[in-house]
């Protein structure tokens, strides 16, 4: 019997990536929400759906990000070798604290509607960042820091995964209050829902990066305070520029705010992706390990 031999040695099998791919699912979730909002805007513009207050449709749209999150993120966690635990717990804990603490403090103590709209550009940035911005980011940070951190942090992207879950819970509370109490038209509700979800996820991802780096890397003692400050300032900058983007002469165009938040989210997530990728590559080189991608 002839003995066949391979001319080249067989390659070792590629080790599968054991975690859910955070960027991929996050982009899918944002894209689905963006598609739904664009569909609603087009449908109202073309007259297929009346652009009036609809509690049912608006509430459905406000809850859509959670449904999409459960479908893409939570479901996929169950299919990987090393699933992230507690994503749903983070989501609901964030919702409870947002509704029980953040909203009352914002409405009763900060009362932004009394002083922020009339303030100048720089006062709007600082005013928003130093009140609503820092409070929102601290709550999202604290939800992750005092539950999952550091025991569930194995790679830097865990920070993004948990922080964006907290952000989604936070944004959903704001969105539900928006559609239930403010009685916005369908298109206006859609734009506001997208804006809240995108900006809270983007800025929470910044804090997620800082938490991930503290768990994995060797940052300084001022690392988290700097992260909170940067996140709060980003929310203030978004608020101030949004005022400019939606103002158009004597009227207003909410679509300007939509483009702004999409661009800002893409920029923040793009920069974070690059930074995390670079940090992982440097760490792999330093430790002499092979990266699983």
């Amino acid at each position: 019997m002839r003995d066949f031999q391979l001319l080249a040695p067989a390659e070792a099998g590629e080790e599968p990536f054991p975690y859910r791919r955070v960027w991929r699912t996050l982009i899918l979730e944002l894209a689905v929400l963006g598609g739904a909002v664009i569909f609603v805007i087009m449908a109202t513009r073309l007259g297929l759906v009346a652009d009036t207050y609809s509690r049912t449709l608006s509430s459905g749209l406000a809850l859509l990000p959670i449904v999409v999150f459960l479908f893409f993120s939570v479901r996929r966690e169950r299919r990987v070798l090393e699933p992230r635990q507690g994503l749903i717990a983070i989501l609901f804990l964030s919702m409870v604290i947002a509704n029980g603490l953040a909203v009352p403090v914002i409405n009763e103590v900060f009362t932004p509607e009394r002083w922020l709209p009339g303030a100048g550009f720089f006062n709007r940035i600082l005013g928003y960042a130093f009140t609503i911005g820092i409070l929102s980011e601290f709550i999202k940070y604290a939800v992750v820091r005092y539950t999952m951190w550091p025991s569930r942090f194995r790679i830097r992207l865990d920070g993004i995964a948990y922080s964006t879950a907290a952000a989604l819970g936070f944004a959903t509370v704001l969105n539900l209050r928006l559609v239930l109490y403010d009685e916005l038209t369908l298109s206006s509700a859609a734009i506001n829902i997208l804006t809240n979800v995108y900006i809270h996820i983007a800025i929470a991802a910044v804090m997620g990066y800082f938490l991930g780096e503290l768990a994995i890397g060797n940052p300084s003692a001022m690392w988290l305070p700097i992260g909170l400050f940067v996140a709060a300032m980003l929310s203030g900058i978004h608020f101030a520029f949004r005022g400019i983007a939606i103002a158009s002469g004597l009227g207003s165009r909410a679509i300007g705010g939509l483009f702004l938040v999409i661009g800002l989210t893409a920029a923040i997530l793009g920069v974070l992706s690059f930074i995390i990728e670079s940090a992982d590559a440097r760490m792999a080189d330093k430790l002499g390990v092979r990266r699983i991608r």
Binding site: N123, I134, L135, L214, F229
Partner: peptide
């Protein structure tokens, strides 16, 4: 880690305090 966590709380309180001062001055 303790330093980071403690300073994060302190900076949040300080920044909110500054925010309330700014709010008062604008109002």
């Amino acid at each position: 880690v303790n330093l980071n966590t403690g300073l994060a709380i302190i900076i949040t309180v300080v920044v909110i305090g500054l925010g309330m001062i700014l709010r008062g001055s604008i109002l």
